[in-house]
Structures are given as C-alpha cells and as structure tokens.
Design a protein around this nucleic acid. Structure first.
Lengths: 314, 314
DNA sequence: TCAAAAGTGTTATCCTTACACCCATGT
DNA sequence: ACATGGGTGTAAGGATAACACTTTTGA
C-alpha cells in the first residue's frame, strides 16, 4: 500500500457559548499565529465513536468539558485541507469532520493558548444588532467588482442584502463560500498563492483562521442560527436560571439581529418553553427581573418547536 | 505504520425518485442477498472531492447520473460498520459518508443487480397515507416489552405515536435507531450475534439491508421529509412539467401522509413556487389538469420557503 | 424624582384549517 | 348522464407584527 493512499480523519469542534451578551467560540491560538478551532486526529483504534474522541481531545486540549454536541459536516476537498496535511503519517489526505458544541458556561479554561473569541470577529458583517454593519458597506465595492456575470451579481445581492435585498441571517456559510470563491478571504489567497488583501478591506472581511477552520466555523454558525428556529437549542447556552431579557440577548447575540421584546416573550409562552421560578434577579439595573428555567420536559414530549424569531426590521 | 491504523472512507448514496406515486430508492441487490445502497470506497488520490467521487461510482455501478446531491452524515461507530470492513486494505476501520441524491426520473438502469425499491418496504410503519399502518399495530407489543424504564416508554410513545401521541413524520432516523437499540432490527441482532426475530414481527419492522445501509437510508429519508418543509426540494423529484395533483402525490409519497388539496395549492401559490404553463395533461382520467413548472428563479431570489404541509388528520 | 430596565394591553392583518361545491372531460 | 378527477369560495380561529404604556427597583 503506497503512502499516498493514506487518509487521516481530523475532528474539529466549534464550541459556542455566551459571554457578556456576545456569542463566543473556543479558539486555540499559539503565540503570534492565526487562531484555529480545537482539533485533533481521530484514532481508529482508541476510539469507538467520533463523539467520544471529540470529547476526549477537546478536554485534553482546552480543559473543557463538552455538553451538547452534534455533527456538522465532513470536509474532504483537496486543496482546502492545507497546512495540517502532515499529522504523523507521511503525505496523507486529511478529511475533517466538524462538530458543533454548545455550553452554558464560557469559563476560562486556563489551558495554554486557548481562549474564547467573539464569533463575529471572524465575520464582522454578520452582526446586525446595531443595524447594518459598516463592514458590509466596505465590502460592497469588492463584491460588485467580482460579480461579472448577472448570476454572480444576483447571488451577491441576495446573500449580502445589496440593493434592497433582505438579509437572511442563516446563510453564514454561503456568504463565506462566496467570499472564498471571490478570492476575498485571506484563506483563498493563501490556498491559491495569490497576494494578500489591502488592510481596510481585510478588516471588514474578518480575521482568518488556519486551514479550513473558518469554513467549519461558518458551517457551525449557520447550523446554529437555523436550528434555533425549529429546535430549542438556545437553552444549551443558558444557565439553569435566567431572565427573559438575558435569553433574548443570547438569541440576539447568536442571530446577530435585534428581536421584538413582547413578541419574543409571547412566542416563548405559547410554545410552553419556559417556566417562572418565582425568584428574581435584582442585579439587572432597573426593576428586578423574574428568573425562568427551560422546561426540559418538552424535549421528550411534543412539538419542540424552537423559537420563531420576531426580528425587528430596519 | 501498523495495519490497524488504516482508515477507509466509504461513500454511500441514498438516491430517491418518484415512480407510480411511490417514493423509491436505488438499491443494489446481488442475487439472493440483502439489498444495499450504491456505495464505494473514496480514493484520496483519484478524487478531488467526495461529490465527484460519488457521482463517478454511482454512474459506474448503476449507469445512473445523479442530479441534486447533498451530504447527509458521516458514520464512524465501531461495530456498526461490520461486513464491509475489508475493502482491499487489510483490517481497516470503515468510515462511511452518506449522501442524498434526488432525481426526477426513475428510469430503469439496466445495470446488473440494481433496482428501484419502494422506500417504505424498508420501513413499513412510515407510510401513513392510508391511515395508521398495520405494521405499527404489530410492533407495539414488542416496543412495550422493551420499554422497561419510564423514559424508554415515553420515548417509544412519542416516536411511534402510541397512546394518542401524534405522529411526526420527520423522525424516521430516531425511530430506526430506537428499533436498533431495542434489538428490533435484524441488523442489531446480526451486529450483536443475537437470534433472529419471528417472521410476522420482522415483516412489520421492515426489510433489512447490508451493513449500516438502512441507517443511512433512514437518515436520508428523515432529511428529505424535514427539508421539504423549508426548501423547495420536492421539485428535484418532478419532471419539467407536472400537474398539481402529481406534485401533491409526490409530496405525499415522500411524507407518507395525505395532504389537504386546496390548502396544499394555496400554500404553493402564496410561496410563488409554481407557474401555470397554459397547457394541459388530458391523460388524468377526469377533467384535464393544467401543467405547471417549478419557478426555479425563486432559488436565487428570496425566501425559498419550501412547502408547509397541510396534513390531513386521521 | 428620575433613570433604567421589566413587564403588559390591544389591534390590524395575515395565515392556517376546515367546511363543500362547481367544472371539464371520457365513456 | 355519470363517473372521475381538476379546480375554487368562504369563514372561523389563531398566529404575527406593530403600536405604546405601566410597573418596580436603585441612585
């Protein structure tokens, strides 16, 4: 069997939490290098399942215990698996299996080189909580310059809400893929050996990551944003007891969009997702807020509807 | 490098079509053996991407050209990859990447040992078009016998609509996994070396497949049933021109549930998914039906809502 | 007393569900 | 004329989106 037939499976984790009303992701960043996701090789002898392997090495690397976990996607494109291709077995092809993990506590891990980073620092144009982000404005000329066919222009318009198109927050991955395709991601330039982008544009496009990790992160954020709408996954990011405002801010932090307060609450109530605890949190600044808990019973019981997101337009 | 470190990537395809108002899946069935899905090893040297590899070997094996394709899931559990573990590289661990393919034409392939088989022959309890299927009735005692803890009983009740719980058609995979866990799938008995099931029960539980192929099929059908609701994927199963009744029967065949005619049409219209062609099909038996086409433009344009399925209760 | 955030009331509109009935063709 | 499927009208009830106002605390 020739060495070039070897395949190595790599596991990567997009671990998301909420910290100070921001969606944050667990990153590994060796001194002065690009950030990456926690990742490791899958050992076919030592591990019975991917999930067990993932939990083990994430704990190993970051001292962090995963809670909710789901598989995202398996990436196998040649040429986008770049710098990790050598993991101890010669010139192997690396296939990477991405996972999404959600955790209620972004506690500091105290493992070397690991840190929680805001999700939107890698995708600045994805945060619309304060209205249309400046980053988008900065990108538009570059997108229009790339879009030479009518098809490309239509796609760019749709994905990046140009010319009055409405923003669809779920499409994080499609947007990143378009940027990659358009050569507007530093990773693309790197993979293809093209020159780097000018700094102001690069800033708007977001910080790059090693290998294909930003692609995996985009996949995870897309999945999370989409799934929130039909499964009550947000609660995996919340502590046992929380106020409704804190919950709303968590949803907003993930969706990157502001919600309508009362309609958000009505939707929660109608779905029977939360239950008041009769206790209050007095640390909120104004009137004390009632504490609620997630009615985990609904998971085993019926519709499990998730939230419909009453987005505020404008 | 020891032989036991080897990993082989297998690709499997769940290729679905509509034939005579039935959802059918492309199967490979060597004489007198269990059915399987088209599958093949992924060659890291020859193939740039999984998708290209998949298209190539499906065409090779079945003489069939795939159209719409999406990745499903990557399976890596030890002990469930059983009989395929030897694909020319010693005692390798097989990781299988499942794909879903949709095609408008279930033409006969004329390749040896390949055939289109009704999806529900592998999951008889999934077809509720004629009301609650008998298969479910036949399974209930076995499910109750397995469910010794309250948790297990609640799960079984919810998934299999026992004791008045409502049926959720999307959960094909969860149901299959429960049956496997309960030892009620022949594959489970095989993987664990347990005795086979009595014939009448086995019939209700559906025909088994080689390796973990029924699991992959269940994954594909779950995804398809779910995705239909938020993306207009049904149209990948339809010819260029179709009648609304034919479309409805296709949706029903996939969802395994009857729909409300007028509401189905209203939903279509509201979403702007179809457009009348001004032509009619006179072969339908009664009044000739108008032919419609899918407005593929909506894919690039806006909401892409998919259908909401106006299920008929009872 | 005022700022800050928590927590309602109410309405117009739209969507979903459910009822049944009419229409155009072939036999 | 009648069987067979194709193709609407309409109304009740519920869900959404949008309007702003009251309540309770700390400073």
């Amino acid at each position: 069997m020739s060495a070039s037939h070897a395949v190595v499976i790599g596991l990567s984790a997009v671990v998301v939490a909420i910290q100070d009303n921001e969606a944050v992701v667990l990153t590994v960043r060796p001194r002065d290098q690009l950030a990456g996701l926690p990742f490791g090789p899958f050992d076919p002898d030592g591990h019975r399942t991917f999930e067990l392997a993932l939990r083990a090495f994430v704990n190993d690397q970051t001292r962090f215990d995963l809670g909710y976990v789901e598989q995202l996607y398996t990436f196998g494109d040649k040429g986008r698996d770049a710098p990790l291709a050598d993991m101890g077995s010669g010139a192997a092809r690396v296939i990477s299996v991405g996972y999404l993990g959600l955790t209620p506590s972004a506690v500091d891990t105290h493992a070397p080189d690991t840190a929680w980073a805001s999700c939107w620092r890698f995708f600045p144009y994805e945060d619309w909580r304060e209205g249309r982000p400046d980053a988008l404005l900065a990108m538009e000329p570059a997108l229009r310059a790339w879009a030479v066919t009518p098809d490309q222009l239509a796609r760019a318009r749709l994905l990046f809400a140009m010319d009055g198109a409405t923003w669809n927050e779920d499409r994080v991955l499609e947007r990143y893929e378009l940027l990659y395709e358009a050569g507007l991601a530093p990773e693309a330039a790197r993979d293809r050996g093209e020159p780097a982008l000018p700094p102001p544009l690069a800033q708007a496009l977001g910080e790059p990551m090693i290998s294909d990790h930003r692609r995996i992160l985009a996949t995870g954020l897309s999945r999370l944003r989409g799934k929130m709408k039909y499964r009550p996954v947000v609660f995996e990011l919340m502590p046992e007891a929380f106020t409704l405002s804190a919950l709303q801010r968590a949803v907003e932090a993930v969706a990157g969009a502001p919600m309508h307060k009362q309609n958000f609450r009505r939707a929660l109530e109608r779905a029977g997702l939360v239950e008041g605890l009769g206790r209050v949190d007095s640390e909120t600044g104004g009137r004390p807020a009632e504490l609620f808990r997630f009615r985990r019973e609904v998971l085993g019981t019926r519709a499990q509807s998730g939230l419909n997101l009453p987005l505020l337009r404008d």
